[in-house]
Design a protein around this nucleic acid. Sequence first.
DNA 1: TATCCCTATCGTAAAATTACGATGAGCATG
DNA 2: CATGCTCATCGTAATTTTACGATAGGGATA
Lengths: 97, 97
Amino acid sequence: MERASTSKKDLQLAAYAKALAHPTRIAILNYLEKQSSCFTGDLVIVFPLAQSTISQHLKELKKAGLIQGELKPPKTKYCIHQKNWKIAKELFQQFFD
Amino acid sequence: MERASTSKKDLQLAAYAKALAHPTRIAILNYLEKQSSCFTGDLVIVFPLAQSTISQHLKELKKAGLIQGELKPPKTKYCIHQKNWKIAKELFQQFFD
DNA sequence: TATCCCTATCGTAAAATTACGATGAGCATG
DNA sequence: CATGCTCATCGTAATTTTACGATAGGGATA
């Protein structure tokens, strides 16, 4: 019986899955897909959560690479990170066959 | 500005993502896809983790509905829950467009 | 009936996640 | 230069996750 190794792909997929593992983050991404971009403040209005909580979720999504932020002082404009989005999409596709 | 509601689909997708949000669980599912089925003990040999830890991961996967267990005393045989697997696959597909 | 296998569950500790209010930093505008 | 707006970060508390060893239970076999 062979020892299972945890591949880079497994780790990456798990990291993406972790970013998606919260309903609010799913909803934020859905929102971003519809709107193509938005400011933090928009989400604070749309979601019944504190501003700091929204910011924290955005941070998680950025850490995973699924979104990117652009400074538009005094606001921050977020949008989907298309390149990584595609990578994630393909990893999930492969995973599910 | 409209209030975002968290739909059933969002919740279900987040739940599946949560189940996939750990490298070991990804690896277990990969293993199950290859072998089509396995016993808990197989995984204990294959992965460098305690038996109770493996059991806990299996429990998480079962809770999410991605696998199912069948008693084959004194063993337990696990396999992918095909129906839910397909549902998960489609949810991720839809999500990524 | 007693014993043996295998696995689930319990108890527990450390770490991570999630939420909030408060604070601080960055950059326009007055 | 001071003010105001927006957002990130800090500090913190409650909960959840992850890991382990130890224990319990279910069903064969002797």
